[in-house]
Simulated assay, not measured.
Amino acid sequence: MPSLAEAQWQAVEKVSAYAIKGQSGAELYASIGERGPNVGVGRAIAHTNFKLTWSRKYEPQDDESCILVSARPNLIITYTLPKAPGKLPAAVRQNWETFITGVTAHEKVHGEFIIDMVRQIEAVSVGLRAEADPDCKKIRTELTKRLGELSVAQRQRSRDFDKVELSEGGNVHQLILRLVNGY
């Protein structure tokens, strides 16, 4: 059962498609290599990105401390996915559907990692207190430090997941082989 705070917000999920071309699995995959999103040192099949903003309420206390009494996230997750041509040979269409369903499921896991991070941020934010902080400045520095740690952990979790999924024999690797080889 989600806490009251979790029940008050929902992530907005969007899909941004990029067009690819081809009539065979190999042609579709080659087109992904040419047109896929640029991430890091090369192109990817798909990518998950997010925009996170917060509405926070800090309250100075009579004892000159400061408490973060509320933190409401506004989270938009965008999945960038390939979009195949509308008309494909039946066998290629079937392989494509298996491929894109698997790739979408993979990206949704990244989305869940992001949502988990936001929930963790919320958990460490609400109720955070800084002593001797009547202007509520120290608390912001402490919060930024904690959020940085959670962000680093989320990125590492995503990299670890990709390492397994994209490795030889991994789920995404298998999806690529099925698409390109048609089995």
Rank of each mutant, 00 (worst) to 15 (best):
residue 2 P to M: 08
residue 2 P to G: 10
residue 3 S to G: 05
residue 4 L to K: 15
residue 6 E to P: 09
residue 6 E to A: 10
residue 6 E to I: 02
residue 7 A to E: 14
residue 10 Q to I: 04
residue 10 Q to S: 13
residue 16 S to N: 15
residue 18 Y to V: 00
residue 19 A to V: 02
residue 22 G to A: 02
residue 22 G to P: 08
residue 23 Q to L: 03
residue 24 S to Q: 02
residue 24 S to R: 02
residue 26 A to L: 00
residue 27 E to D: 06
residue 27 E to S: 06
residue 29 Y to E: 09
residue 30 A to P: 01
residue 31 S to C: 10
residue 31 S to R: 11
residue 32 I to Y: 09
residue 36 G to I: 03
residue 37 P to C: 12
residue 39 V to A: 14
residue 39 V to N: 10
residue 40 G to R: 02
residue 40 G to H: 12
residue 44 A to L: 00
residue 47 H to V: 12
residue 48 T to R: 08
residue 48 T to I: 05
residue 49 N to D: 14
residue 50 F to W: 05
residue 51 K to A: 13
residue 51 K to M: 13
residue 52 L to M: 08
residue 54 W to S: 07
residue 54 W to P: 07
residue 56 R to S: 10
residue 58 Y to R: 04
residue 59 E to Q: 06
residue 61 Q to G: 00
residue 62 D to Q: 04
residue 62 D to E: 07
residue 63 D to H: 04
residue 66 C to G: 00
residue 68 L to H: 00
residue 72 R to Y: 04
residue 72 R to D: 11
residue 72 R to N: 09
residue 72 R to H: 08
residue 73 P to L: 12
residue 73 P to F: 09
residue 75 L to K: 02
residue 78 T to I: 11
residue 78 T to V: 11
residue 78 T to N: 09
residue 80 T to V: 11
residue 81 L to H: 09
residue 81 L to C: 10
residue 89 P to C: 00
residue 89 P to A: 06
residue 92 V to R: 00
residue 92 V to F: 03
residue 93 R to H: 07
residue 94 Q to I: 03
residue 96 W to R: 06
residue 101 T to V: 00
residue 102 G to V: 08
residue 103 V to Y: 03
residue 103 V to A: 03
residue 103 V to G: 06
residue 104 T to K: 13
residue 104 T to R: 15
residue 104 T to L: 14
residue 107 E to G: 04
residue 109 V to Q: 15
residue 110 H to C: 12
residue 110 H to Q: 13
residue 110 H to R: 11
residue 111 G to S: 14
residue 113 F to V: 12
residue 116 D to C: 00
residue 116 D to S: 09
residue 120 Q to R: 15
residue 122 E to T: 09
residue 122 E to L: 10
residue 124 V to C: 05
residue 125 S to W: 00
residue 129 R to M: 03
residue 129 R to Q: 08
residue 130 A to M: 05
residue 130 A to L: 03
residue 134 P to H: 03
residue 135 D to N: 09
residue 135 D to V: 02
residue 135 D to L: 08
residue 135 D to S: 11
residue 136 C to K: 01
residue 136 C to S: 01
residue 137 K to E: 08
residue 138 K to Q: 12
residue 138 K to G: 03
residue 138 K to C: 04
residue 141 T to W: 07
residue 144 T to E: 13
residue 147 L to S: 07
residue 147 L to R: 12
residue 147 L to T: 14
residue 149 E to D: 15
residue 150 L to V: 14
residue 153 A to C: 07
residue 154 Q to P: 00
residue 154 Q to C: 15
residue 155 R to A: 12
residue 158 S to C: 07
residue 158 S to M: 12
residue 159 R to D: 15
residue 160 D to V: 01
residue 160 D to C: 02
residue 160 D to T: 11
residue 163 K to P: 05
residue 164 V to C: 02
residue 164 V to L: 10
residue 165 E to A: 03
residue 167 S to E: 07
residue 167 S to T: 07
residue 169 G to M: 02
residue 169 G to C: 01
residue 170 G to E: 08
residue 170 G to S: 06
residue 171 N to M: 12
residue 171 N to R: 04
residue 172 V to S: 10
residue 172 V to A: 07
residue 172 V to I: 10
residue 174 Q to M: 08
residue 177 L to K: 15
residue 180 V to F: 06
residue 183 Y to V: 02
